[in-house]
Each structure stands twice: as C-alpha cells, then as structure tokens.
Amino acid sequence: MSLKLMGAEIDEMRLSVPESPDMQELGGMVADCLRGGDVVLLSGPLGAGKTTFAQGLGKGLEVDGSVVSPTFTIARELHGRLNEGRPVNLIHVDAYRLGGDGYGPGEDSVNRLLDELESLGLDEELEEPGQETVVLMEWGEQMASVLANQRLEVIIDRPLEGGVNPDQPPTSLGKREVTLRGVGSSWKSRMRSLRKAVQA
C-alpha cells in the first residue's frame, strides 16, 4: 500500500493517495470502521476518484452488486455486511442534480432540499439512518451538513502536476490528496482507528 499520511489532527487527517488501487484500499479501511446509521459524505471534482473510493467501500462491506456512479439514478441501494457481520443496506446517493438550478435570494434552501429528499424517500434515511443502513452521498456537501450532524467527510482533491493540461478531460491516473474529517462524537475513536490502519 502506498498511502502516505500528510497531516493529522484529532478529528481529521490528510493523505496522499498515488494510485487507484490505493484509493480502493482506503475505501475498504473506511468500510471497516462503519456502523449502522453512519453517513459518509464524498466530495471532489469530476475525475477525482469518488467512484473508485466508493467501490473500495462497497467491497469492504461485501455488497451484493457493483458500485457505480449513481448519476442517472440519483440513489441506489445495495445489501452487504458490516465488519462485525451484521447485515447493512448501503444507500449510494448522487446529489449532484438535487437543488435544480440553485436557490434564489432568500429562498429556504433547507426546506427545498428536504422536499426533494422526501420525494425520493431519502429524507428520513439522512436525518435518522436506521441501524441497518449506511448512507454514502456524493456531491451532497450542503445537504449532509444540514441533515447529518454525525458524519464522515471524505474530500478528494486532485492537484495538477507538471505536464498536466487542465483543459483535457480528467483521467483515473495521477496522485490524489484525500482529507478524512470525522464530524460528531461518534467519529472520535474511529478516526484514531483509521489513522492506525493507515500507518500500519
């Protein structure tokens, strides 16, 4: 494994992730720490490696199907197992299109998001995920921060290196920088466990 710890605080760590297999392995490490009711917020630009991370997380949960970008379905449900062996439903959400054309001045964005989630049957899953559910949400920064006060934020950045043309379509090649941030008391001890797993 080539993951490299770049910096760490009590509730946050930054990693250098050089290859796609390393990103999948990181997803598997996060899966090992998950409990029923968890919300994982996954963000980063196009081509950053969100789907690769999600595939590693799905593999770690031993889900019963392929983890693909849910762009055209908004939400997908897969069945797997937590590290301790209990069954879990992984709800993989792509929130990119939620919110439509954005919000007008003075518009109540929280209520509008809740309305959209309710129409998809996801509002209760995010507000109070059941003990048999893990929610993995892509492109949901605004939404999850409002609805999920206990969450793991996974922020993938793709720094441009010399010789990379920023106008070219993104590829799966190249180093990524990943920030893992535990929000809420339930993530304090698990962030320590994740740091130990990365350093091992």
Rank of each mutant, 00 (worst) to 15 (best):
D115V: 00
R76T: 12
R14Y: 01
M1C: 10
G106N: 02
G47F: 11
G36E: 04
E141G: 15
R190K: 15
Q24C: 09
L98Q: 08
S145W: 03
V183W: 02
L46E: 02
A8I: 08
L82Q: 07
G182R: 09
R35D: 07
L61P: 13
Q168I: 00
L152Y: 01
G80H: 10
N165C: 09
P159H: 02
T51M: 07
T73E: 08
E138L: 05
A54H: 04
A144F: 01
N165A: 07
G104M: 07
L173C: 12
G47W: 14
I155W: 13
T179D: 00
G37A: 14
N89R: 14
T179W: 14
V67I: 12
D22R: 06
G174Y: 08
A48N: 07
A8M: 07
E84T: 06
T52W: 05
E12Q: 14
E138T: 04
T71G: 11
E127G: 03
M137V: 15
E153F: 12
S186W: 06
P159A: 08
G99P: 02
I74V: 13
G174I: 05
Q199R: 15
S119D: 12
L114R: 14
L120Y: 15
L136D: 01
L98P: 05
D64F: 11
G47M: 09
G162R: 04
P129W: 05
G162I: 04
L120R: 06
I91L: 14
R35S: 11
R195L: 03
H79C: 11
S2I: 03
R97S: 07
V198P: 10
Y103A: 04
K50M: 07
N83L: 06
V93E: 10
L98I: 12
L61F: 01
S185N: 06
G65A: 14
V198Q: 15
S186Y: 02
E153Y: 05
V93R: 07
H79L: 04
N149G: 08
G182E: 05
P170K: 05
L3H: 09
S119N: 13
R176L: 06
H92L: 07
T71C: 02
Y96I: 01
G102N: 03
I91T: 15
G36V: 02
G121L: 09
H79N: 10
E125F: 05
I156W: 01
L78C: 08
L5V: 13
L46W: 08
E127N: 10
L41T: 02
K4I: 01
R76V: 08
R192L: 12
R86L: 03
G36Q: 00
R86P: 04
L113C: 08
V68S: 15
L160I: 01
E141T: 07
E116I: 00
P87Q: 13
D115H: 15
G104A: 05
G80R: 03
E77H: 14
R14M: 01
L120F: 12
N111A: 12
S145C: 04
S66T: 11
G65N: 11
E107W: 09
L46R: 00
R35Y: 09
V154D: 03
P159G: 00
Q168M: 14
L126E: 04
D108L: 01
G7P: 02
V134I: 14
L114W: 02
L15I: 04
L5D: 08
I91V: 15
V154Q: 07
L90E: 05
D64G: 15
L26Y: 01
G85N: 12
L122T: 02
V135D: 03
G56C: 03
L114Y: 12
G65Q: 12
